[in-house]
Design a protein around this nucleic acid. Structure first.
Lengths: 205, 205, 205, 205
DNA sequence: TATGAATGAGATTTCATTCAT
DNA sequence: TATGAATGAAATCTCATTCAT
C-alpha cells in the first residue's frame, strides 16, 4: 500500500481518537489498532505522538479553512459572504465532528506546541470576519463608522459565538447547519447593522 | 492545621493545576507539591483524582453562579439585568482564570462524569438568559413577538459568545471586564432588539 | 477503660481481620476501626503490625492448646483420650473460626517470624498424639510393637487429617464437632489398631 | 524469544514467588526480575497480578491432576489404584514444592476468585477417592457396606491427610514420596478395611 | 514496507507508622 | 489514656518509544 494512503488512514484514526478521547487519554496503541497497522509503522511515518497530533491539527485546520473559503464568493455583499461562510462552517463542523473536536476542544487545552497551531488558523478567520464587518460598514455609509479598535472584539465575539453554536449543534440532535447559520445571522447581523448606524447600546451610569 | 483549611489549600492547588495542565496532564504529585502537603494527605481528604476534579468543578461552578447571581438585581429591566450579569461574569472569570479554565476548557473535554457536572450549571445560566430575552420582548411590545423555539438558540448563542469572549479577554492583556461586557451588549442586544421588532435577517433564496 | 480490656478488644478485632483477610491484606486502619479505637492507640499498646500478628498467634495457640488439654482426662485409655481431645479440638475450631484461620491458614503462609510461633504449638500436639499412639500400643500388647520411627509420621498424618477436617467442617454447613471427631476416629483408630497388631498394609512389588 | 517460551518463564517465576511469599507479599517487580524480563512485559503477556495468579493456579492444578491421573492404572484393584495415586501425588508435590504451595497454602487463603479455582480440582480428586473407597467396599463384600453419606467425609479426611503429609514431607528432609505414601496407606487403608467389615469405632456414652 | 518483542519512566493509589497535643 | 494530622516508601499498572528482523 502506498505511503500516502497509509498515512491518511493513520491520520483518520488519530483524528477520531484524539477527538473523542483527548490528547493525553488517546493512546498510540488505540490509534494504531484503529488504523489497522502496527505501532512501529505509525512511528515510522508520523514520528511521535506530538508530531502526529500537530499533523492532525494542521490537516483539520486546513480542511476547515478550505471548506469556508470554498463556500464564499468574493465580491458579493458582505452579509451574503458572512452567511455563506457560516453555512460552510457549520456544514463542515457537522460533517467532521472529530476534526472539529480536535481543533476546538483538544488542541486549545493542551499547552503551547498545539494551541499555537490552531491560533494561526483562528486568527486568519477572525481577520476575514473583521474585514467583512468593516466592508459592511463601508457598504452602509461609504465610510467606516466604527472605530478601528471596536471591530476586532466584535469579530472575536462573532467567531466565538459560531464556535459555541457548532459545538451545540453537534451535541443537539436535529439541528441543521442552515438553522445554526440563520440563528447566528439573526443574532449578530442586525445588531452589527444597528451599531454601524451609530446606535450602540450604552451601559447605565 | 484544621482540616477545612487544608482542604481549601488543596482545592486551590488542584484548580490551578487542572486549569493550566488539563485533567490528564495534571499529576497528583504536582498538586500536592503546590498545596505544600504530601500526596497521601490529598488522597486522605479528597479520595481520588476523579473525586478531586469533580470537587473542583462543583466548587468553581458554584462560585461562578454565585458571582453572577450576586451581580443581578431582580426586577430591573431585562437589559439592565443582562448587563449586570455579564459584567459579573466577566469580572469573575477574569479574577479566577484557572477556575474558568477548569469549567470551560477542561471539564467539558473529559468524558461523562465531569461534562455533566458543568452542563447542569450551564443549563441554569442558559435558562436564565432565555427568560431575560423573553422578558425583554414583553417589555418592548407587551406580548411575545419571538416564537418560543427561537429564543433558546439565541440564548445559546449569547452564552457561547460570552464564554468565548471570557477566554479571549483572559488571553488578551488590557481588556477589562467592562469592555468585554460592553462589546457583547452592543453585539447582541441591538440585534435582539431588531429581532423583537419583527425584522429578522433573512437568508438568500 | 483499663488497658487489659482495651488490649483484648484490639486483639479480638485483629484476629477477626487477620483471619478473614490474611496478614497482608488486613490493614491497621480496618483493625483499629473494628476495635473502635484510633490507630495510634493500637501502636501504643501493640507496637507494630508484626507484633500484633505474633500476639494474635500466641493468644490463639494458647487458647487452642488450653481447650484441647481441658477436654482430656489423663489416665484414661488412649482411645478415650484421643476421642476427647479431638472433640475438644473440633469444638474449639468451630467456635473460633477466625482464630483457627489465623493459626492454620495465615500464620503458616507468611514466612519465618510467624510460622515458627505456630510450629511450636503444633509440635506440642503432635508429641501428645505420638505418646497416645505409643501408649495405645502398650495397652494392646504390653510392649511397643511399632518401631519408634514409624509412630511420628502416623501422628503427623492424624494431626494433619484433623486440621483438614476442621477446615472442612467450618466450610461445610451442618457438620458438628462430634461428627467430625467420629469420622476421624473411625478413619484412624481402627487403622492404627490394625497396625499395632502387626498387620500393616504392604505396597506392591 | 518466542512468546510461548517467555510466558512459560514468567509463569515459572510467578509460581516460585507466589509459592514462597504468598499472593500479597509477592511483588510484580520480584517476579519480573526472577523471570529476567521487564515488568511491562509481564503485564503485556499476563494482564494483571490477579490474572497471573489465576493462571498459575490453573497450570499447577492441571499439572497435579495430570500427574496423579498418569500414575493410576484404571481397572486395577482399588487399593492398588489408591497406592499408585498417592505415590504419584507425593512424588509430584515433592518435585514441585512451589506449585504445591500455590495450590495448597496460597490459593486457598486469598478470597473468592482464587479459592474456587483450586476447589474445583480438589473436588475432582475427592470424588475420585470417594469412588475408590466405594469400589473397595464392593470388592470386599460384593455390596456396599458403608452408608453413602459416610464415604464422603472419609474421602475428605484421606485427602486432607494426604495434603498435610505432603506439606510435612516437603518440610522434613529425608522423607521420600514412597515413605509418605506407605504411611498414609497404613494409616488409612486398614482403618477403612475395618470400617467396611462393619467394625466402626464407637464413641463412649 | 512492515512488525513481534521489549522497556524506561512515570502515573495513581495504599499502608504502616509517627508527631504534637 | 487517647487522637487528629501527616508522611515515606512501595505497590500495581500504563504508555510512548525502540530494536531486530
Amino acid at each position: 500500500m502506498p505511503r500516502a494512503e497509509r498515512e491518511r488512514q493513520m491520520m483518520d484514526a488519530a483524528v477520531a481518537t484524539f477527538g473523542r478521547r483527548g490528547y493525553r487519554a488517546a493512546s498510540m496503541d488505540e490509534i494504531a489498532e484503529l488504523a489497522g497497522v502496527s505501532k512501529p509503522l505509525v512511528y515510522l511515518y508520523l514520528n511521535s505522538k506530538e508530531d502526529l497530533f500537530s499533523a492532525c491539527i494542521r490537516r483539520e485546520a486546513a480542511a476547515l479553512v478550505e471548506a469556508v473559503r470554498g463556500g464564499i464568493t468574493p465580491g458579493e455583499p458582505a452579509d451574503q459572504q458572512l452567511w455563506a461562510g457560516l453555512l460552510a462552517f457549520f456544514t463542515h463542523t457537522a460533517e467532521c465532528p472529530d476534526g472539529w473536536s480536535v481543533l476546538h476542544s483538544q488542541a486549545r487545552t493542551h499547552g503551547e506546541p498545539f494551541a499555537r497551531e490552531v491560533a494561526v488558523m483562528r486568527e486568519e478567520i477572525v481577520a476575514f470576519v473583521t474585514l467583512l464587518i468593516a466592508e459592511a460598514a463601508r457598504e452602509a455609509h461609504g465610510n467606516p463608522t466604527l472605530p478601528e479598535g471596536e471591530v476586532a472584539p466584535l469579530a472575536e465575539a462573532l467567531v466565538g459565538a459560531a464556535e459555541a453554536l457548532a459545538v451545540w449543534a453537534n451535541a443537539t440532535p436535529g439541528v441543521t447547519a442552515r438553522e445554526a447559520a440563520t440563528t447566528l445571522m439573526n443574532f449578530s447581523w442586525a445588531g452589527l447593522a444597528n451599531l454601524m448606524q451609530g446606535k450602540p447600546w450604552s451601559p447605565p451610569k
